[in-house]
Nucleic acid binder design. Structure first.
Lengths: 221, 221
DNA sequence: TTTTAGGATACTGTATACAGTATTCAGATT
DNA sequence: AATCTGAATACTGTATACAGTATCCTAAAA
């Protein structure tokens, strides 16, 4: 019997905690000033400290949290330098995906991408967070299409961090809607089959996003 | 008083276990047939299961181990597809580093790279493992020079996996020495300042490595 | 001989208990 | 009032105990 894969969705409590924490961060229920303490969290969730600790440690290793000097974990802060590096890393990952897609020229795949983009960009009364999510959805679709699990994993890592670092905070002050809408163009360029051009287009697109982001940060400071 | 950073070298037992496991895998003391069981390991190391579990779980999330269906953890195996994807990911990461270096044109940095390469390639009676390590040292030096902590992190992740997947096993059957020696050339190309050319050179270099690797795998099968 | 049922075994996951350490705060001292 | 000292406190890290579940093995039945 080979249907082991179905039953084997090992769902540990730690995973649950992890997801809840991520959601809470996304929803701004956990802010930069909150201190996450194992015992407190465990009590709140009515479970033991063990899985809570596991989740927190994972988030820490992912760079989302870091332990406060007075005990407990806090949201990690990101510097402008780190932001730049993060976008550079994005360019590396997503640029490579673009190269792969340009080389492969899978018409069906590209059509699927167009559909997803259209769908994601079709929002009524979108909030800034909606834009952010749509943007991620679209970019992630490119990654999935490229079909490289490691690149995808890295992509998720990067965007997870972005979430952690409260990119939102910055992005809410930027006109992110500008960066939406060029995505179909990206598909067009990929469809032309020039790998170098595809990479450059993605790099440029991400660079744009970076500059918007910086504007956002600076408008706060 | 701001010398907190010095004392705060949080060293947990789990870290120790982690390092020992990594070392054991590198040294081939842990093979694909070994089953790593929390209790057994804990007994052997004369510590409790808690930190052992933490280390194993970490290795699992990194893709180095996966839990055997009969309980316990085993070394993860890598398919030919995954190998290709791994090299693609490497090309993304390291190619971007090359682009950065080419754009920056930091003569001192490049000179340092040449020195490191020379030093690493200078081996007497090198074993295959020595080649592997030298190769990693050199490539990591490029990454460090590029100065992007996220790219570096991803690099380490990839090479960690490579270790896990017992690339060695394949590489021992390949003539890896071939792929050594072109590294100074890579610096030359970077020094010319053309970002696209730098990226292509790296991609090509890594592609070469991939093919050697495949030869290795296939010579076993 | 092959199959099946049932219990022992061997694990993991979770909870709890214990120990050590850094931080904080209150009170004493200058 | 400012500073120092030491005990209380608040946390983490590690060990241990407990519970549940999948695997394996044995022995009976077909």
């Amino acid at each position: 019997m080979a249907l082991r894969g179905i039953t084997t969705q090992r769902r540990r409590l730690a995973d649950e905690v992890y997801d809840q924490l991520v959601k809470a961060i996304m929803d701004r229920e956990i802010g930069p000033d909150d201190r996450l303490v194992q015992e407190k969290l465990a009590a709140e969730l009515e479970i033991s400290r063990t899985p809570v600790r596991e989740a927190l440690l994972r988030l820490e290793k992912e760079g989302v949290l870091h332990l406060a000097n007075s005990g407990g974990f806090r949201l990690a802060k990101i510097s402008e330098d780190e932001t730049r590096e993060l976008y550079q890393a994005r360019a590396a990952i997503e640029g490579q995906a673009a190269r792969i897609l340009a080389a492969r020229q899978d018409k069906t795949e590209l059509a699927g991408l167009r559909r997803i983009i259209e769908q994601a960009e079709d929002m009524k009364n979108p909030s800034t967070q909606d834009y952010f999510i749509a943007n991620r959805t679209i970019h992630r679709a490119f990654m999935e299409a490229a079909g490289n699990r490691f690149l995808l994993e890295m992509f998720d890592g990067i965007w997870g961090r972005a979430m952690a670092f409260h990119l939102f905070a910055a992005i809410e002050n930027a006109d992110i809607s500008k960066s939406l809408g060029n995505h179909t163009e990206l598909v067009d360029i990929i469809a032309q089959g020039d790998r170098g051009a595809a990479l450059e287009a993605f790099t440029a697109h991400i660079q744009e996003g970076f500059e918007l982001h910086l504007d956002g940060i600076r408008s706060i400071a």
